[in-house]
Computed example of a mutant assay.
Amino acid sequence: MSDTAITLLEAVNLALARALEEDADVLLLGEDIGTNGGVFRATAGLQERFGERRVIDTPLAETMIAGLSVGMATQGLRPVAEIQFMGFIFPAFEHLVAHAARMRHRTRSRLTCPLVLRAPFGGGIHAPEHHSESTEALLAHIPGLKVVVPSSPARAYGLLLGAIRSDDPVVFLEPKRIYRATKTLVEDDGRALPLDTCFTLREGHDVTLVSWGAMVSETLSAADRLADAGISCEVIDVATLNPIDHATLLASVAKTGRCVIIHEAPRHGGLGAEIAASLAEQAAGELKAPPKRVTGHDTIMPYYRNELLYLPDTDDIVAAVHELMEYAG
């Protein structure tokens, strides 16, 4: 057990150190990750500990980082690449979509592509343009590409180890708004968490609240407030956005009959729509009301003076639940 409670950011560092220590094929690469320890210091101290051949500072070239990672992964290494912010991930799409995600299929499993691409994402830290995007739906749409989002230090540790040990490519999105928000005890035991499972954080019987990443915090806060009002909420952290564990979601909605999906990404084409459609198709008989979404707006994330107006909050979630509870059909 760690001597002290750690943040989500420190849990990422702890998992990376564990992976580097246990497997000589694991290496890290990215802009400023070595000498400076990364823009958020997620890799602080790792180059000093494991050397420049295992923790590699790269040029400012996301296309090269992704392409190099694909080449390394197909030749037996397990690269963990960092893109400084999700808004800079687009130059890497060619390699992620056209090569990494297709490698197993293209070679009939002769080659696999065990790479991890880490990227901080989401708003709420007063960042400039291109630093606050939540475009996870673009990535989750790609067959062959796993997309994982932790929402706590313990899940960051276990999910990142699971991603590094996966034989297929994983995009690991780290919600930077909660990098240092809370501290919890995390046991450095090397145990990975599965990449195909939702996590039920709270049991309930009136309504299912579904979220991931930073918005899990507001979702849990809403559940507390609603409990005071006599409404029992089941809270589910999706965690892996591709593939989604629909079985857990369906089982929960079969029990509660109502569902609110919460994410900070824009509403149009977001993962909330995919989850709502799946519930409508497969759980129509159990639903007491149509699934409801609480999301960000269909606009570019505004600059810091207005970003809190963009992000959903606890009040928005509570209001949506009350609307569902009053739904009469």
Rank of each mutant, 00 (worst) to 15 (best):
L138T: 00
P194C: 12
V321C: 00
E48Y: 07
G213N: 11
D188W: 02
G87K: 08
M86N: 05
R110K: 13
E281V: 13
A100K: 10
R104E: 11
T295W: 02
E22A: 15
I125T: 02
A254F: 13
V207Y: 05
R180M: 11
G285S: 05
G190H: 12
L271D: 08
E22Q: 15
A137F: 05
A319G: 00
L250T: 09
C113E: 03
K255D: 13
H99F: 15
T184C: 08
E129W: 13
L46F: 05
D25Y: 08
T295M: 02
L29T: 04
F172H: 07
T43R: 13
P128N: 10
G144W: 03
F85R: 02
N36G: 10
P312G: 00
P312M: 01
T248Q: 09
A192I: 13
V216Y: 00
D3K: 13
P169H: 04
E234S: 06
S134I: 08
A19D: 12
L324Q: 04
D237G: 03
T295Y: 02
I164S: 08
G38P: 11
L241M: 14
Y179H: 05
G296E: 02
L159T: 02
R54S: 11
E82P: 12
T240G: 03
I261D: 01
M301E: 09
A229G: 12
H131R: 07
A280I: 12
D245Y: 10
L249Q: 03
A277Q: 11
I6E: 04
A11Q: 01
V149Y: 10
V216K: 01
E326D: 12
N242M: 10
T63G: 07
G45M: 04
R78T: 02
T184W: 09
D237C: 05
D228Q: 15
E133M: 10
E274S: 13
L220S: 03
S166Q: 08
K176R: 09
T240P: 07
A319S: 02
R165M: 05
V260G: 00
D188Y: 03
